[in-house]
Design a protein around this nucleic acid. Structure first.
Length: 480
RNA sequence: CGAGGUGUAGCGCAGUUUGGUAGCGCGUUUGGUUCGGGACCAAAAGGUCGCAGGUUCAAAUCCUGUCACCUCGACCA
């Protein structure tokens, strides 16, 4: 098969090592996940990309329900006066809020913010709904879109408008709120690892990096193939900050009026960007099987020959019955073209059926992660393929874990830190002072604190930068 | 907002230095041969060269202005 001049080939994508940002945009555009829209910073999520989001939603929703949460929907618009009630929150979000100033041709007496997050409007509703300790806890989640007017954007990772879920809960005590905060961070972690096949570091955010208005912010951070970190989800304990601003009070068993303790937690379409950057390779996307809209692509070989298409369809029914999301590609293309096409789209398993296979009563299955051919007897397909999907998942997770470990170093000197953050996570001791954090960012070329992990390790007893007594071992990295 | 870059066919680009008939590859359409790793042959369709002015016998090319997009900064709880 004659190899075309690669640079002229329309499906060519940039090599990751050469230009990671270019590779990333190539992949998501050429695999039909997204398209750029006419609105700057907003992307169109096409069916193939949205299919991934739908699977993320359903897997996550299942976990929310299991932990006692219910879904609701709150308005897109937030009156200015309502948004302004929590001082720190306003200060944090003000620069990136989009405003509605007119209704039709009439100027509004009060501007409406398009939600950058819903703490305020949900807080104001909770204030009405919660009267007694009998009303607690309130455990709600909403799936919606939010808008943040960012100066620079990148598909999935940072867009002006994005889809997410935000959970908001209210509790009687700090401890209950803290327990909820940690529970949901745990759900996120389990989801990232078992569904997205992405290993994550969980821990607490620094004072500077925490959510505007939160008492404590916890995060999960993943490592991308180019050595930059990505925040994949956050969980906040608000203490009574929002309850005090939005007047969320209840009458306790003892008959005393008390403020609620609230939490919020969220994950977004950014996770899709994350999984692309963690798993993708030079051939294109690699989708973890549990969120792949198409898990198996069935490719009929020499499909004009009698019986081939029928066999492919039979295989499709077998796989569907086994709970596998499969598709037959009977398009009028050569086999080689289809192989490359479906590899680029990241489908976890490709199955080939041709005249030779039909003769031998078998199929050829190829895993996307290792590209090795396996011959499977027809009668074993319904058992073997689901198992193979799990193997792909494990393969991806282990590969990502190995990558992260290779890109993680420990630093006891500032030089080591500056060197390490150029290509990954650096664990180092830190005094906890914001001034020191800013200085590190400045001097290291943009590295920020990612989190103080729950699994602490004492590398030394002084801060890697200022030499004062250290408080925590902290992860540093450049981040998306 | 700062620095750099790019606008030419659906997509990717050459042509601009040195002004002279609008080009290439991929894709698309039609017919045929193929079909187990990006096929081949033949024919065809498709462009106000980002926009507006200027110089010239003549502008994709030179000059002035302008718009859009991209990359890197800055910014982004």
């Amino acid at each position: 098969m004659a190899k075309k001049d690669e640079q002229n080939f329309v499906m060519h994508i940039a090599k990751r090592e050469d230009d990671f940002p270019q590779w990333y945009t190539d992949v998501i555009l050429k695999t039909d996940m997204v398209d750029y829209s006419d609105v700057k910073g907003c992307m169109v999520i096409k069916p193939y990309g949205y299919g991934v989001w739908e699977l993320i939603q359903s897997e996550m929703d299942k976990r929310f329900k299991e932990t006692g949460h219910v879904n609701a929907y709150f308005p897109l618009f937030i009156p200015e006066s309502l948004l302004m009630k929590e001082a720190e929150h306003v200060e944090g979000f003000a620069p990136e809020v989009a405003w509605v100033t007119h209704g039709g041709s009439e100027k509004l007496t009060e501007r409406l913010a398009i939600r950058p997050t819903s703490e305020t409007i949900i807080g104001s509703m909770y204030s009405k709904w919660i009267q007694s300790y009998r009303d607690l806890p309130v455990l709600m989640n909403q799936w919606c879109n939010v808008v943040r007017w960012e100066k620079s954007t990148r598909p999935f990772l940072r867009t002006s408008e994005f889809l997410w879920q935000e959970g908001h809960t209210a509790h009687e005590t700090f401890d209950e709120a803290q327990e909820e905060t940690m529970r949901m961070l745990g759900v996120y972690r389990e989801f990232a690892e078992n569904v997205l096949a992405i290993p994550v570091i969980t821990g607490r955010k620094s004072e500077k990096e925490k959510f505007a208005g939160a008492q404590e912010t916890y995060t999960m951070e993943a490592m991308m193939q180019d050595g930059k970190a990505l925040q994949m989800g956050t969980s906040h304990n608000m203490g009574t900050n929002f309850a005090k601003s939005y007047d969320i009070q209840y009458l306790s068993k003892e008959g005393k009026l008390e403020y609620c303790f609230t939490t919020s937690w969220g994950t977004s379409t950014r996770m899709i960007g994350g999984l692309i950057m963690v798993h993708g390779d030079d051939r294109g996307l690699v989708l973890p099987p549990r969120v792949a809209p198409i898990q198996v692509a069935i490719l009929p070989i020499a499909q004009h020959k009698p019986g081939v298409l029928e066999k492919a369809d039979e295989l499709l029914q077998t796989l569907k019955a086994a709970g596998v999301r499969a598709k037959v590609d009977s398009s009028d293309q050569t086999a080689g073209w289809k192989f490359n096409q479906w590899e680029m789209k990241g489908v976890p398993i490709r199955i080939e059926v041709g005249p030779k296979d039909i003769e031998k009563n078998q199929v050829v299955a190829v895993r996307r992660d290792d590209l090795e051919k396996q011959f499977i007897p027809m009668e074993e397909v319904s058992a073997r393929i689901p198992a193979m999907l799990d193997e792909v998942h494990d393969g991806l997770f282990n590969k990502a874990l190995k990558l992260r470990e290779e890109k993680t170093t420990d630093a006891t000197t500032f030089e080591q830190l500056c060197d390490g953050v150029q290509h990954g996570f650096v664990r180092a001791m830190w005094c906890g002072e914001t001034g020191c954090e800013l200085a590190i960012k400045e001097k290291s070329g943009g590295a920020t604190t990612r989190c103080a992990p729950f699994e602490q390790k004492e590398l030394s007893d002084v801060c890697v930068h200022c030499g004062k007594p250290a408080k925590t071992m902290t992860y540093f990295a450049k981040a998306y």
